[in-house]
């Protein structure tokens, strides 16, 4: 399937469009919190803290999954063009992860640092979630062209494989956070597994090539 849109067009119009689209959930959340603080009707429901913890967590996971879908997508389309959007969407995953933590630390726990620290140490699902987030920090920092140059492509690529670990940990965080045996986290898990499976043939080929060399 050929991609007919040219690279310059994608850069000029595609990127701003995607940028705005992926910002919309955050704007929606900010707008509703602004309403809540004004005692105005809003869409956050009866437990707005719980609602925004979940909302930001969901969107972090979605951004992660979209980021991880870029490489399989460009293989499927036989075009490198989707890669143009990968860094931006990856940074959005980090951005929504930051909102998730702000929601938890500020809105939910209201800076009760002692309690927060105890949570991170004692509650395995929070330890797992926090680790998933921390692993994203070096990736966000080294996402610039300058860092790609400084690290050299090979080492940079190796470092950015950390996103796989974040993906797995984030899914675990989600599964562990729900009560009982729930379907929704498993759907996210199945999508992640699918995206890993899509990488398998290429990984095997690479392994074989290395073994032959």
């Amino acid at each position: 399937m050929p991609v007919t849109v040219s690279v310059p067009t994608l850069r000029r119009y595609g990127k701003p469009l995607v940028f705005v689209a992926l910002l919309l959930p955050a704007l929606w959340l900010a707008y509703n919190w602004w309403l809540a603080f004004q005692y105005q009707p809003n869409a956050l429901g009866f437990n707005p803290q719980e609602a925004s913890n979940r909302f930001t967590g969901d969107w972090t996971l979605r951004m992660l999954l979209i980021t991880l879908a870029i490489t399989p997508l460009s293989k499927l389309l036989k075009s490198p063009k989707p890669i143009l959007f990968r860094r931006m969407i990856g940074l959005y995953a980090f951005f929504y992860g930051c909102l998730h933590i702000i929601s938890y630390v500020w809105l939910d726990k209201y800076f009760a640092w002692g309690e927060l620290w105890a949570d991170i140490l004692k509650r395995i699902y929070i330890t797992v979630g926090m680790t998933a987030f921390l692993l994203l920090i070096p990736l966000a920092v080294t996402s610039t062209k300058g860092w790609v140059r400084r690290l050299k492509a090979k080492r940079w690529q190796k470092l950015h494989k950390l996103v796989y670990a974040t993906g797995v940990l984030a899914i675990f965080h989600f599964v562990m956070m729900r009560k009982g045996f729930q379907l929704e986290p498993l759907i996210y898990g199945a999508i992640l597994a699918g995206l890993f499976a899509a990488r398998l043939p290429a990984a095997i080929k690479r392994r074989r090539r290395q073994a032959a060399a």
Partner: peptide, 12 residues
């Protein structure tokens, strides 16, 4: 359509 928020829902 009205699935109201906390503050508003509770206030009104």
């Amino acid at each position: 359509g009205l699935m109201g928020g906390l503050a508003a829902g509770l206030a009104m």
